[in-house]
């Protein structure tokens, strides 16, 4: 069940949903929609190198060490922003850090990142394949930014870029190691 804005405020107040930096009341009013909370763009853009001759092997995965060498990091400012050209893909992250602490007694929450309809009309994707923020996640949300539209789009830090939809986790999470033994290879995780 999706949380309403009042339930989101209550969960933040109860520290079942932790937003850092914690928005004050006036910020919350600006960031809340009826059933979601806007998150803002951070100030780092990670830009993939073109034509480096690397093939991502989905069977064997890729090490974080390799992955980070394939991107250039660029700091963006509120003055200059970053212009995302048509058909270009970059990574960024949210200004806000989110934690969804898991406890046995609950209630526990998971969330999904969604785009904003205003940007969608210009063809901006903020995620396209990994929307789930699992229970017990803690960190900033990585944004998969892609401009599918016909115009360049200039992005600025601290501007609302996406919205987070919260859902209550129903039922217990499996907690026996035996249920997960032998499932730590790609073949075992199907």
């Amino acid at each position: 069940m999706i949380l309403s804005n009042l339930e989101i405020i209550k969960a933040i107040s109860d520290r079942r949903i932790i937003i850092d930096p914690k928005p004050d009341e006036s910020q919350l009013r600006r960031l809340l929609n009826t059933t979601s909370l806007d998150f803002r763009l951070g100030n780092i853009i990670s830009i993939p190198h073109d034509d480096v001759g690397v093939t991502i092997d989905s069977k064997n995965g890729i090490k974080t060490k390799t992955l980070k060498t394939l991107f250039d990091r660029k700091q963006i400012t509120e003055e200059g922003g970053y212009t995302l050209r048509q058909n270009k893909f970059v990574l960024s992250n949210t200004y806000e850090n989110i934690s969804l602490p898991y406890t046995e007694s609950g209630p526990n929450y998971a969330a999904r990142i969604e785009g904003k309809s205003s940007y969608a009309r210009f063809g901006l994707l903020v995620h396209f394949t990994a929307p789930t923020i699992h229970a017990d996640f803690s960190g900033t949300i990585t944004l998969e930014l892609m401009n599918l539209g016909p115009f360049p789009i200039t992005l600025y830090p601290n501007v609302p870029i996406c919205q987070i939809v919260f859902e209550k986790v129903e039922g217990e999470i499996a907690n026996s190691p035996s249920q997960f033994q032998g499932q730590t290879t790609p073949e075992g995780s199907h």
């Binding site: 951070g42 780092i44 990670s46 090490k63 974080t64 060490k65 992955l67 980070k68 991107f71 990091r73 990574l91 992250n93 850090n97 960190g139 900033t140 990585t142």
Partner: peptide
């Protein structure tokens, strides 16, 4: 170091 300044790459 990770891809972003606020993260580490961990093995």
């Amino acid at each position: 170091e990770g891809m972003f300044p606020n993260e580490y790459a961990v093995e």
